[in-house]
């Protein structure tokens, strides 16, 4: 568990950036953003960690190795029919679209959580990518 310290400048920047997002939270897909895995680990813990763990299926599926994995195939997790029948691999672009609005990407999925800020999405994806690389996926 990270200690909450004086905020780094990037946090302030993200908050200011967040204020400029549309009310729908629908920030446009921004493929050029550079993600930071260390920041992504923090964002993951704070925003994804209520439903997901890296190595255990909880409310949502386990995430270690998700980057590069075919959608709907985490072992032992009971997916919605929509995600179970999805035919794509979780890469940078698909994860970004998913975190931006999962129900727009896969209508019928049970996940409704949106991570509106594009930089935080990039950071989380960088973190998941790093985990997959470390796991040899």
């Amino acid at each position: 568990m990270q200690k909450l310290q004086t905020p780094a400048p990037w946090i302030v920047g993200l908050v200011v950036a967040g204020l400029t997002l549309p009310a729908t939270g629908g920030a446009p897909h921004t493929p050029g953003l550079q993600g930071d895995a260390a920041r992504g680990a923090q964002v993951y813990a704070a925003n994804c960690g209520s439903c997901h763990s890296l190595d255990a299926n909880r409310v949502g599926p386990a995430h270690r190795g998700v980057f590069g994995r075919k959608a709907g195939t985490a072992p032992g997790f009971a997916y919605s029919p929509a995600l179970h029948s999805a035919r794509f691999v979780w890469d940078q672009r698909m994860l970004d679209r998913w975190l931006q609005n999962p129900q727009a990407l896969v209508p019928g999925t049970r996940m409704g959580f949106r991570l509106g800020d594009p930089q935080r999405r990039a950071d989380v994806i960088a973190y998941l990518r790093q985990l997959s690389a470390a796991a040899g996926h």
């Binding site: 209520s50 439903c51 949106r114």
Partner: peptide
């Protein structure tokens, strides 16, 4: 858990 839950509820509101 409580922090994650608060963020989860906020995150689903637009959906």
């Amino acid at each position: 858990h409580e922090r994650g839950a608060a963020n989860a509820y906020i995150g689903v509101m637009p959906s």
